[in-house]
């Protein structure tokens, strides 16, 4: 194996077993797009008003997902998480997502 192929491997998103990988804790927030009606959020808001919390408005319900991800580096982890969110965790027709990463 020459040095070039080693370099090529080290930048690939899926690290080989003998390479150092970093494990990250990911915290993913999936929220309804602003244009999508959220009747559940409206119902919760009504409940809060019934509790006497008059100053609260704009309640929107979403999902919070935690997962661990191992990758060569943070850029690779972010790229893979974008795919995971676009393909399954969020439906881009109705939802937006954002995530935070923390190495562990």
């Amino acid at each position: 194996m020459n040095s070039n192929s080693v370099t090529a491997q080290s930048v690939s998103a899926h690290a080989a077993p003998d390479q150092a990988v970093v494990t990250y804790q990911a915290r993913i927030h999936v929220t309804l797009r602003p244009s999508v009606l959220d009747p559940a959020g409206a119902a919760v808001e009504t409940g809060l008003k019934h509790l006497g919390h008059a100053g609260i408005s704009g309640v929107r319900m979403g999902k919070y997902i935690e997962l661990k991800i191992s990758a060569a580096n943070e850029a690779a982890a972010r790229q893979q998480l974008d795919q995971v969110c676009d393909q399954l965790l969020a439906n881009p027709v109705i939802e937006n997502y954002r995530f935070e990463l923390e190495s562990i």
């Binding site: 999508v36 009606l37 959220d38 009747p39 559940a40 119902a43 439906n91 027709v93 109705i94």
Partner: peptide
């Protein structure tokens, strides 16, 4: 098919 099916407006 395009679009999505979301929670009923009246809950």
């Amino acid at each position: 098919l395009p679009g999505a099916l979301v929670r009923n407006a009246n809950l």
